[in-house]
Design a protein around this nucleic acid. Structure first.
Length: 411
RNA sequence: GGGGGUGUGCUUGAGCGGUCAAAAAGGGCAGACUGUAAAUCUGUUGGCUAUGCCUACGGCGGUUCGAAUCCGUCCGCCCCCA
């Protein structure tokens, strides 16, 4: 078994760690069980979640057993950590539904078949808690003085924002999660974003106090892009792992369009390429860096959507930007009846209808500012009517700006 | 329970009773330059059957020729006292 801890470290996954030597030692020995919590407030994970996912995958490849848990119980309270306001609560049914989608996505990266890995909802043990018992058995181990020192709480208190008692209990519940997982599954390592550090440590302490056992914690750095933006967000919103919400092609393009400065870091995080290769690619400059981005995009897409989709996305991208013809199959397409086209469709209407502009006014602006193209020809007059005469063999190729394409074909 | 404050467009945040679709910044989009990058410059950024009309300044109601701006009330959030 190779030294996974070393791998995680050199790939940049380690931000804080309860005790580096112990964790390194633990990971180089017999298989252990570790866990990461995921937020079930949305029905899909997004690119930002790839950091914990990839870390889990590295560990599983080294023979360790992952537990992915969704906070069905905790979400019903709302996590105050690093939030300026209270997180909205969501219903148990919604959590259940979201959990199913999330599990499917995780399975692309991890084996969660209930032998090699597990997928659990903490509602399972949290919902049946009895208040008095919980206070007596768990609550007595927590010191309020310590709790309010935690960054997340402290900020809320200092900024005089107020913090409900409900939210204040979040840390106890997460610590309790760890305790349960330790007791039932022998879980001895919790991973999470650095904002979770306080909660993780609370769990480590709790297990030590109740079970007199030493368990461990490790956090990942919170990723931002070189531009300072949150990882995995774009104009259109989050970059989802769900192919329905973010198509494989869009997913691919997200990685292609990242800042040059992020290339090496992201290769280390989001691919399994050996580090010497990562460094070689990261060292490329100017035009060549695009090759590195292509590798990153392809690898990341392949992991998230499989080889077939990755190949398709890659060829579409190459065709679109490499000067050649487009890969028409992968392009979003709208079907229009020939009668309608023969009658003529105002250009603003067309751009709006296919979704390249959110409203007709936006379409108007786009056109007036020279961002509207049909079959690679720019059209700046808003009163143009698109009809069958403009049809080419592949239909109409609409483009908004440099990168957003849409095809219109006849019925 | 008492007192005070606050609620504006994607976000932050100005806003005298008319000249407010609402300052400013950020963000977004488009154009130029480029490498599908960054930086920079320019334009733009509620909708529409478009030199006009409609919808918008927490909800409802009122005062007024006229309200984001005044009054009442309700809701949300925040602070202080209990």
């Amino acid at each position: 078994m190779s030294d996974v801890f070393e791998t995680l470290k050199e790939r940049g996954f380690v931000q804080q760690c309860t005790n580096e030597e112990n964790v390194a030692h633990l990971l180089s020995g017999n298989p252990i069980t570790y866990y990461v919590g995921f937020d079930p407030t949305a029905d899909s994970l997004h690119a930002g979640s790839l950091v914990p996912i990839m870390a889990m995958a590295h560990l599983q490849r080294a023979g360790h057993k992952p537990i992915a848990i969704i906070g069905g119980g905790t979400t019903m309270i709302g996590d105050p950590t690093d939030k300026t306001e209270m997180r909205p609560m969501i219903s148990a049914e919604q959590v259940e539904k979201n959990g199913e989608s999330i599990l499917k996505q995780l399975q692309r990266y991890l084996d969660l078949d209930n032998t090699e890995g597990f997928f659990l909802n903490n509602a399972e043990w949290l919902l049946s808690l009895n208040y008095i018992d919980f206070l007596r058995d768990i609550g007595k181990h927590f010191r309020v003085n310590e709790m309010i020192r935690a960054e997340g709480y402290r900020q809320r208190l200092e900024r005089e924002l107020g913090l409900s008692f409900l939210e204040f209990n979040y840390q106890l519940l997460q610590a309790y999660d760890y305790l349960c997982l330790f007791q039932k599954y022998g879980c001895v390592l919790q991973l999470g974003g650095d904002d979770q550090w306080g909660n993780i440590v609370a769990g480590v302490d709790l297990v030590r106090r109740i079970e007199s056992e030493r368990v461990h914690g490790l956090t990942f750095p919170l990723l931002t892009t070189a531009g300072g933006a949150k990882m995995g967000k774009t104009a259109g919103g989050a970059v989802w792992l769900d192919g329905e919400k973010t198509s494989p092609y869009q997913f691919y393009q997200y990685w292609i369009n990242i800042d040059d400065r992020d290339v090496e870091r992201f290769l280390a995080y989001f691919t399994f390429l050996p580090m010497d290769e990562v460094q070689r690619l990261g060292g490329l400059e100017h035009d060549e860096i695009r090759e590195a981005k292509a590798v990153l995009a392809y690898q990341a897409t392949k992991l998230a959507h499989g080889k077939v989709e990755a190949d398709k996305a890659q060829s579409t991208s190459r065709a679109a930007f490499g000067g050649g013809g487009m890969d028409l199959d992968a392009m979003p397409t709208t079907v229009v009846s020939s009668d309608r086209l023969n009658a003529g469709i105002p250009i603003m209407e067309l751009f709006h209808e296919v979704g390249l502009a959110a409203s007709k006014s936006e379409a108007r602006r786009l056109i007036q500012q020279g961002g509207a193209y049909i079959n690679d020809k720019q059209y700046k007059a808003i009163d143009i009517v698109v009809d069958a005469k403009m049809l080419e063999e592949n239909g109409l190729l609409l483009r908004a700006g440099k990168r957003r394409y849409h095809r219109v074909v006849l019925e």
